[in-house]
Amino acid sequence: MHPAPSVIVFTTLSGLGFGLLIFLGLGLPDVTGMVAFVFFAIAYALAVGGLLASTFHLGHPERALKAFSQWKTSWLSREGCCAVGALVAMGLYGFGTVFLGTAWPLVGLIGALLSLATVFTTSMIYTQLKTIPRWNMPLTPALFLSFSLAGGALLAGQETVATVLLIIAGGVQLAYWVKGDQAFAASGTTLATATGLGNGGTVRAFEPPHTGTNYLLREFVHVVGRKHSQKLQVIGFALGFALPVLLLVLPFNGLMLKHIMAAVAVLSHLAGVACTRWLFFAEAEHVVGLYYGKR
């Protein structure tokens, strides 16, 4: 799959933003006034910034409102509805904590659940696609949810929880890579099933239908970027999980140093997640590539 920057930015930032909103809604940390304002500003900048980035790849962004209508069948529509619901509920909750100095736990809980649902529905947009075997597995929602929760805990300053969640998310990522590498073969889709010509012998793509490129090849066949996938896996894992865990576990003296280290951990995690998210798209192979003799 073509790793579109807009979608990578969207899933990375909004995943982190909604992760932070989940913890804020649960009252972790239990803050009010100016401190609460800073936390909510960061969460909304990430979540809304991500959502806005996602509209950049649309052919007709001005019609985006129509996308709230098909929640009965479409995961993309459900994601839109959950995201708006979460932002409204958490906006209300944030208003209470920032301006009135009171937290409404029920509103916060609803906001947290809707934020969690937003991340889940985002993951299901990818998971539902049988055409991309690497995404079509239960580990995909596990990946998105564990990343969002770990990043949210990290941003919310929940050191112990963040350490545990980062280790879990790192584990899910490793499992996802191992399983993902076997997914295409396990799906059973080959050029033989794609053409129905397998009974006659070995099928080979002989001549493509067009000499130039087209939408399908640009969107679904991204062979070039996979060259460095192993190096990027190491970099993404080190920055996203290993370094932040190390920074959380190591004992630092002094509040200032602790804060700086936390900031480094957050930035490192963000860079690492963006790197693994790039791989999530670049390594995903769409079955339509079979018709072109490519994957």
Partner: peptide, 10 residues
């Protein structure tokens, strides 16, 4: 679109 495939029998 019209693709062309080669089938090599065993």
């Amino acid at each position: 679109r019209v693709h062309s495939f080669e089938v090599q029998p065993q």
